[in-house]
Amino acid sequence: MKSFEDLDRLVGAVPFDVVTHLRTIDTGRGSEALYRDKLPALLTSLADRARVASIEASSAIEGIVVENRTRAAAIVSGDVDQLHDRSEQELAGYRSALDYLYQEQWRPLNIGLVLHLHRLLFQYGATPGGQLKQVENLVVDRLPDGTRAKRFTPVSVASTPAYLDGLITRYSAAQDAGRHHPVVLVGLFALDLLTIHPFVDGNGRITRALTNALLQEAGYDVTRYVSLETTIARSADAYYASLLSSTHRWHEATHDPWPWLRYFIGVLAGSYDQFTALTASARSGGSKQDRVRDYVLHHAPEAFQIGDVRTALPGVSDPTIRLVLAQLKAEGLIDVDGTGRGATWSIV
């Protein structure tokens, strides 16, 4: 809520590098309708893969991992009747929360929606969801030596309902007013919700799920096709560092939101770059081997696995991907660390 008390002062002057990222985002948004008309099958495939990646990555950020990949896939698909442990229960719960937000009827944004998402997240476990925290909480970091350090103090139990209601009301009013870029406002909403920390557990996952929904509501659909959570998981240190910087002095409303907004908007701009690369690869023609080669040399992350290429190029088989990777390695263009599914490839 604090970020919305004086928006003109807080985010009226947007840093130049953030403006550049916002231009990339708006350009990407403008092309989404074209791709929906011309590449519907590709977008359906990308959406299916992004959904799976988002469920697994957002859970993994919180240390919730199902090591058996086949079983994890079955849980995400809803094909498992018996959930064995907390990780499996919460993976299934996040699937339910995210899928609920993929439906159009989730609107409007209100406290009831936030509580419902939390209830879905914990519906399979022993810990009840769907209620605001009843005990005071701290957000801490675990240091390399095993000790813990306080990152910030969330809003008190007594103040949480009013702060949460105020955040939703002010965010909605700011989006309706249209004075500030809608992506900036979504970023501020995420920052404030994480700082209010309305639940004992699940705050990060609820915030990330809502971030996807609010971006899509504002017309930025890229999170349907490219997993924002996967990028966050891969840059977790930067994610937490930016939050730490921007929550400092939040309670006094004298905080600096730009470390967080710079990170968040940069991640979203990168998602649009990735989306452009994926659609360009599909439109470029050429053989499947050519498409793999182009993606690896020009569009893949600095370090990638076969699964990343598979996600980027729907319809290209694993044997084809492995063949091209072997050729590129023989040419001295890429190198590999490890073997099997866990192998990580990188440009030389």
Results as ranks from 00 to 15, higher is better:
L7I: 13
R341I: 05
P182I: 09
S59M: 00
F189M: 11
T320I: 14
A173N: 04
E88S: 13
G286Q: 08
A343L: 03
L333S: 15
Y220H: 12
R262A: 14
L22N: 08
D85W: 02
V80Q: 01
Q89M: 15
T311W: 00
A53N: 08
L243D: 04
G187A: 03
F152L: 08
L143V: 10
G129P: 02
G93S: 10
G202T: 12
Y163F: 13
V19M: 10
V139H: 03
L325S: 07
L132A: 01
L42V: 11
S287R: 14
L109M: 13
Q175N: 04
A72I: 04
T160W: 07
G332C: 13
E252C: 01
Y171E: 08
S77H: 07
D308S: 09
S284I: 04
L109Q: 02
P182Y: 04
V336D: 00
W345D: 09
V296G: 07
H118R: 03
I196H: 04
D6R: 14
H180D: 05
R69C: 02
A177Y: 05
G63M: 09
R95Q: 11
L210M: 15
A126S: 13
T153H: 11
A190S: 15
P161I: 14
D99A: 14
Y35T: 04
L7F: 05
Y102M: 10
R283F: 03
L115Q: 09
D81N: 06
K150M: 12
H180C: 05
A41C: 01
L328G: 09
L39V: 04
S87M: 01
A330R: 14
A41R: 09
L132D: 04
I306T: 14
V80W: 02
I55F: 08
D81I: 06
S59Y: 07
Y100H: 15
D17R: 05
L115C: 03
A177K: 12
I265K: 06
V14P: 15
R95D: 08
P198C: 07
V183F: 03
D8I: 11
R179W: 06
L109W: 05
T279G: 05
P319I: 07
T44R: 13
S245A: 15
T279H: 00
E90N: 10
T279F: 00
G315E: 11
H299R: 05
V186Y: 00
Q175D: 01
W260Q: 10
G130M: 01
E302S: 12
G12S: 07
D85C: 02
A57R: 10
S172A: 13
A343I: 03
G307C: 01
K2H: 12
Q105C: 02
S96I: 00
D318L: 01
Y163A: 14
